[in-house]
Design a protein around this nucleic acid. Structure first.
Lengths: 152, 152
DNA sequence: ACAAGTATGCACCTTTTGGTAAGTACTGGA
DNA sequence: TCCAGTACTTACCAAAAGGTGCATACTTGT
């Protein structure tokens, strides 16, 4: 089988607690919670900037539309990760912060952030090649997220 | 101003290196790499089981179709996370393993896996409520169960 | 009076994603 | 010969995700 295999197999990762009620594993559960184009970014942003007003968040997470931001915030709130505070003032004032649960999840995102930062050169290069190839190979890759606007 | 805010702001998370060439931050870069329904699962699986044949992987990652598995594997390979080995034998024999880059990413997924495992009860409960509500309230998550938006 | 800002809601539409089912080239077994 | 298994490929489709733009109710600034 794989005994005559040229690749050495490095140390394995911790098992991901298989056969859970509705999920493949804990990783699967987490991924479903953070599924959505902006959720991880929102979580991480909220973790950094603490409770923040809607408008400010919107301006910070550039490229996001009202509909999307509101929608993702609502889902995050429904999932108990984000806490919405409505001050019931006359020009509406609302702000969003993380719950302890949300904070824990945001912290779990740190290694991904680190990995991305450390390998940004690799990733950038690969993505450039990917897009260049997309022009010619229709079936090679069905185009990325299309989100290329530089929000920085 | 959030100075008159009732919520205390806990210790901030490490900054995510903003203003990178094509990405919002390192987290954004990572998320684009692992975007796709099966990629994180494939990476994690490959990290655990080492190089594995296509058919075996397919049977392991249940619910995945050939089209999806192949597609995601190709993208992962193009992104330099997965290494494909074709033995060029007569009944085709191919296997897939992680590159060092892919292994690093798989390791960065561990905290997400842990978070999901630790909070599986919460997540399961929330998802159950979400689904229950979806059946009856088509706008439940969009309109919000507790609509406090308009200052009365 | 009018524009702008506040935090959303909603209708409509396009893009992206994922699924199903069939086909390919080849071999080994019944 | 026919079927099964290998590792894919392709065409076609449905669903989900996401985007645009307008509307709201109210206030402040010009």
């Amino acid at each position: 089988m794989s005994s005559d295999h040229p690749n050495p197999v490095p140390s394995p990762l911790p098992s991901c607690t298989p056969t859970l009620p509705g999920f493949t594993c804990g990783l699967d559960a987490t991924l479903r919670v953070i599924a959505g184009k902006w959720k991880p970014l929102i979580l991480y942003f909220l973790a950094q900037r603490g409770p923040i007003r809607y408008g400010e968040l919107r301006r910070a997470v550039r490229d996001v539309s009202d509909k999307m931001l509101i929608q993702q915030l609502k889902e995050l709130e429904a999932d108990g990760l984000v806490k919405r505070t409505d001050y019931r003032e006359v020009p509406p004032r609302v702000d969003y912060g993380l719950t302890p649960l949300g904070r824990g999840l945001a912290e779990a995102l740190v290694p991904l952030c680190v990995w991305g930062t450390e390998n940004i050169a690799e990733v950038t290069r690969l993505f450039a090649e990917r897009e260049a190839g997309d022009d010619k190979l229709p079936a090679a890759r069905t185009a990325g997220t299309g989100k290329e606007a530089s929000p920085g």
